[in-house]
Deep mutational scan, measured.
Amino acid sequence: QVATSTVRILGMTCQSCVKSIEDRISNLKGIISMKVSLEQGSATVKYVPSVVCLQQVCHQIGDMGFEASIAE
């Protein structure tokens, strides 16, 4: 089973930030795809909930120095 959710990301300033986040999160087990939008300050994450949760994704992004939260 696959889920798609949006994560809000604060602190991104350039495409390099976007690429860094996409590269790191895409390597997590259970992540199918991730598309980060600098303009919208968010990311669309396609993932397998039984393998990885959005809290883990937000935590990983937080470790990179950005502020991440699950969009309502």
Rank of each mutant, 00 (worst) to 15 (best):
S50W: 08
S33N: 07
S5T: 08
M34W: 05
I31G: 00
C53I: 08
M34D: 00
A68P: 05
L28A: 02
S50K: 07
Q56W: 15
S20D: 12
G30L: 07
S69Q: 10
I61W: 04
P49R: 08
Q15I: 10
T4S: 07
V51R: 05
V52K: 01
K46W: 15
V36Y: 02
S33R: 06
S50P: 03
Q15K: 11
G41A: 14
I61V: 04
N27H: 12
T44N: 07
K46G: 04
V51P: 00
T44D: 06
V52T: 06
L54Y: 04
G11C: 06
A68E: 02
V18R: 05
C14P: 01
M64I: 07
T4R: 07
L10N: 09
A3L: 14
C17R: 03
S26R: 11
V52D: 01
S26D: 02
A71I: 14
V52Y: 03
G65D: 02
V51C: 05
I9G: 00
S42Q: 11
T44R: 13
V2H: 09
V7H: 00
L54A: 04
K35Q: 09
M12R: 01
V18H: 02
C14V: 03
V48W: 14
T44K: 11
G30K: 04
M64Q: 01
Q56P: 01
L10Q: 09
V48T: 08
M12N: 00
S20T: 12
S26P: 01
G30T: 05
E72G: 11
S37I: 07
S33E: 09
V2C: 15
Q55C: 14
I31R: 02
E22M: 08
E67M: 12
I21T: 01
M64E: 01
L54K: 02
L28F: 06
K19V: 09
C53P: 08
V45E: 02
D63K: 14
I61S: 02
T44E: 12
M34A: 07
M64G: 01
K29T: 10
I21Q: 00
A68H: 03
V36G: 01
I32D: 00
M34V: 14
T13N: 05
S69E: 09
A3M: 14
M12D: 00
I25S: 01
T44P: 01
T13W: 15
Q56C: 09
S16G: 08
K46I: 15
E67A: 11
G65N: 03
Q1Y: 08
H59L: 15
I9R: 01
A43T: 02
E72V: 11
L10H: 09
G62Y: 13
V52L: 10
N27A: 13
S33I: 05
V7N: 00
G65Y: 05
V7L: 15
I61N: 02
N27R: 14
V51Q: 10
L54E: 01
G11S: 03
N27C: 06
R8D: 07
C58R: 10
S20P: 03
K19E: 11
G30A: 04
Q55P: 06
K46E: 15
G65T: 03
G62W: 15
S20Y: 06
S16P: 04
D63W: 10
E67L: 11
Q55V: 11
E67V: 13
S16Q: 12
Q15P: 09
L54N: 01
H59M: 14
K19I: 10
Q60V: 15
A3P: 02
L28E: 03
K46S: 14
E22V: 09
Q55I: 12
G11W: 06
S26G: 13
I25T: 03
I9C: 06
N27P: 10
I21V: 05
S16T: 14
R24N: 08
I70Q: 05
A71Y: 12
E67Q: 12
Q40C: 13
I70G: 04
A43Y: 04
P49N: 05
S33Y: 11
K46R: 07
I9Q: 00
Q1A: 06
Q40A: 12
I32G: 00
S16Y: 06
R24G: 09
I61Y: 04
G41D: 06
M34L: 09
E39S: 10
V2A: 07
M34S: 02
V48L: 12
Q60R: 08
Q40E: 11
G11M: 05
V7F: 13
C53L: 09
S69V: 11
S5W: 07
I32S: 00
M64T: 02
E22C: 06
I31C: 04
K35G: 03
E39T: 11
R24Y: 06
C17P: 03
S16A: 12
L38H: 02
V45C: 05
D63A: 14
I70F: 09
L54W: 06
C17S: 04
S50V: 05
R8P: 04
C14S: 07
D63F: 12
S33G: 06
Q1F: 06
R8I: 10
C17V: 05
V51L: 13
Q1L: 05
A3N: 10
L10P: 03
A71D: 13
V45K: 02
A3C: 15
V48K: 09
C53K: 12
E39M: 10
V45S: 01
I61H: 03
T6V: 13
S5A: 14
I61Q: 03
S20H: 08
S20G: 05
I61A: 02
T44V: 13
E67T: 11
I70P: 09
G41Q: 14
L38F: 11
Q1H: 12
H59Y: 15
L54S: 01
G11D: 02
H59W: 15
V7R: 00
Q60N: 09
Q56H: 11
M34T: 04
N27G: 12
K46H: 11
G30R: 05
G62H: 13
N27T: 12
G62Q: 15
S50N: 07
A68K: 02
S5V: 13
V36M: 04
C58S: 09
A3Q: 09
L28R: 02
C17D: 15
D23M: 12
Q1D: 15
I61E: 02
Q60T: 14
G62R: 15
D23R: 14
T6G: 05
S37G: 03
L10T: 11
E67G: 07
V2S: 10
S69K: 09
L38R: 05
Q56L: 10
